[in-house]
């Protein structure tokens, strides 16, 4: 896919037939309190907001559900299948998430390793194949491997979401080359999911040409999540514009910026 650049315009992001203005997507986990979460999401400018499907705690307050804090009219809620270790589990969670009644999108995760939370790509492809047949718009969290990304696209995913680095690590973009390669080869949107730690990570990631970034911990665990959300919004925008602008060529030598002519004797 090529991007036609005209001055100061960017095409909107379209995933599974829906169009979004913001290229930053955010999670809702691990915030110190719900008020901070609400303010941080507002400051991020995100439209797509991820949520998890879990048992209602029957022994506690009824207001622990995220819908008491987030307006589903304002945000596009993206249910995830986090903590699923098999395709069957992920399919079950995806169906429950869809039944909550907001949309047909799912952020598909099938985890293969508890320590690194690296995805199980065999399970992912299996789950994606089943869910695509059921009409889901699948956004699949995967590693930064090109062949896995291609297989997920073939399985019918609406977007492929390679990691920058492990979930919750904040290590930033570990392999820009892999991410660029995936972006170049896929037709569906590529959203980098997980690993971004600070605004410069977001900027560098967007400079690779990807369509967007999904993050959670970088906001929730910042000392000031609301201010970090603003920084991430700007980081994503800066990186996107830099990509569209097209950076100068790298040179291993210095080239003066001021004229070499007109100098005094």
């Amino acid at each position: 896919m090529t991007t036609t650049v005209t001055a100061q315009t960017d095409s909107p992001l379209t995933i599974g037939g829906r169009t979004f203005r913001s290229r930053l997507m955010v999670g809702t986990g691990k915030y110190a309190d719900n008020q901070t979460m609400v303010e941080a999401i507002d400051a991020s400018g995100a439209e797509i907001v991820t949520v998890a499907v879990r048992r209602v705690d029957l022994d506690r307050t009824r207001e622990e559900g995220i819908l008491y804090h987030l307006d589903p009219e304002r945000y596009f809620l993206l249910a995830n299948t986090a903590a699923c270790y098999t395709a069957d589990e992920a399919i079950r969670y995806a169906r429950l998430g869809r039944e909550a009644g907001f949309n047909e999108f799912v952020k598909l995760e099938v985890i293969g390793d508890q320590e690194t939370l690296m995805p199980d790509n065999t399970g992912l492809i299996e789950a994606a194949t089943t869910l695509a047949k059921e009409g889901f718009q699948i956004m699949a969290y995967t590693n930064d491997d090109l062949v896995s990304a291609l297989r997920l696209e073939d399985a019918g995913c609406a977007a492929v979401m390679p990691l920058a680095s492990p979930i919750g690590s904040g290590l930033g973009l570990l392999n820009p080359y892999h991410i660029r390669t995936i972006k170049k080869r896929l037709s569906v949107p590529v959203i980098v999911d997980a690993g971004v730690g600070t605004a410069s990570d977001a900027c560098v990631t967007m400079e690779q040409g990807v369509d967007g970034i999904l993050m959670n911990t970088a906001l929730a665990q910042a000392e000031d999540p609301v201010v970090m959300a603003r920084a991430m919004r700007l980081g994503v925008e800066a990186g996107r514009w830099a990509y569209l602008a097209g950076r100068m060529a790298r040179r291993e030598i210095a080239v003066p910026s001021s004229p070499a002519t007109g100098l005094l004797d």
């Binding site: 999670g27 809702t28 986990g29 691990k30 915030y31 979460m37 991820t50 949520v51 998890a52 499907v53 879990r54 048992r55 209602v56 029957l58 622990e64 559900g65 995220i66 819908l67 809620l77 249910a79 995830n80 986090a82 429950l96 998430g97 909550a100 979930i167 919750g168 997980a194 999904l214 993050m215 959670n216 911990t217």
Partner: peptide, 10 residues
């Protein structure tokens, strides 16, 4: 019976 809802997550 399983009763589920949306909670915070990434």
């Amino acid at each position: 019976i399983e009763l589920v809802h949306f909670v915070g997550g990434g």
